[in-house]
């Protein structure tokens, strides 16, 4: 019996720890601003680069801004961008993927050539390029990241539709006399949701990663608005004097990603019986 304990424990651990982390972060993103001890943009010249203390629990940055407050607001920035990006990418990805997979033929070929060409750019590079042209702003970032990550959704959605449409219940629906639209809405779409849910969860992680990478390069969320990525970038010159400026935002990103990855694994195990031993 001992052989099975770790596996059992892991299944639960993924869900509990991952879900717990994500839930805390969501609460932080929603209520963070009302809990934050300071205004994240307010400069306190006397506390410049002050190490963590009673006044500033997690220290203050190079302008004397409270790091804890900035991290809390940063959670909201990051969370909002990730949510908007994933929603956009999933919506358009599903739309194009289902159209391509269900209509097949020329529509499918043209959509797929376009999609494959988008996939021919590494995701981050495409986002970087769009940001370079559009200039750093939140909205541009959301658009750039959605475009960069949509092709993956199109692929998965189309693949699922192609496999679902071969199922006999789709043919049964036709023989029944249902129109194509009814067939898609009632039978195809619900059966695509499992892999899409897993993908959306994973994608949350990718987007947060890319957002902070771009912000770190100065091509994402423009300062002074706090995001974990640009906090890392602005703290970099002070790495020896004030390592906490680097350690803390990075820990936040890693913890978030860990939570999302674990939750994604739990979802995958739960939704995909093939992965269950």
């Amino acid at each position: 019996m001992t052989r099975f304990l770790p596996r059992l424990a892991r299944g639960r651990a993924n869900l509990l720890i991952g879900g717990g982390i994500v839930a805390v972060l969501m609460l932080l993103a929603v209520f963070g601003p009302s809990l934050a001890p300071y205004d994240p943009l307010k400069l306190h010249l006397r506390s410049v680069l002050k190490a963590p203390s009673a006044a500033h629990l997690l220290g203050a940055d190079e302008f004397g801004r409270d790091v804890l407050s900035r991290l809390m607001y940063g959670a909201r920035t990051t969370g909002w961008i990730a949510l908007a990006t994933v929603a956009l990418a999933i919506f358009f990805g599903l739309l194009f993927g289902i159209i391509a997979g269900f209509l097949r033929g020329w529509t499918d070929r043209v959509l797929m050539i376009l999609n494959d060409s988008l996939l021919a750019f590494p995701g981050l590079l495409l986002a970087l390029f769009i940001m370079a042209i559009a200039g750093a702003s939140r909205e541009a970032l959301i658009v750039a990241l959605s475009i960069a990550y949509m092709p993956a959704v199109v692929r998965v959605a189309r693949g699922t539709v192609l496999s679902v449409r071969e199922r006999e219940y789709i043919e049964a629906s036709r023989v029944m006399g249902n129109s194509e639209l009814v067939t898609v809405v009632r039978h195809v779409l619900p059966n695509c949701m499992a892999p899409i849910t897993v993908l959306a969860t994973t994608m949350f992680g990718w987007v947060i990663l890319s957002e902070s990478a771009l912000s770190f390069l100065g091509l994402g969320v423009p300062p002074p608005a706090p995001s974990w990525g640009n906090m890392l970038a602005s703290g970099r010159p002070f790495i020896t004097q004030a390592p906490y400026l680097i350690v803390l935002p990075g820990l936040c990103i890693s913890l978030t990603l860990l939570g999302i990855n674990m939750l994604g694994d739990a979802l995958r195990d739960w939704l995909d019986p093939k992965m269950q031993a």
């Binding site: 199922r167 049964a172 629906s173 023989v175 006399g177 129109s179």
Partner: peptide, 23 residues
């Protein structure tokens, strides 16, 4: 026209694992 005809025609498939919508 197809829909009208469907009332009178039906099909039963081989694999009952794939012919019913799992959801």
């Amino acid at each position: 026209a197809a829909r009208l005809q469907r009332e009178e025609m039906q099909i039963i498939f081989q694999d009952p694992y794939s012919s019913l919508d799992p959801r």
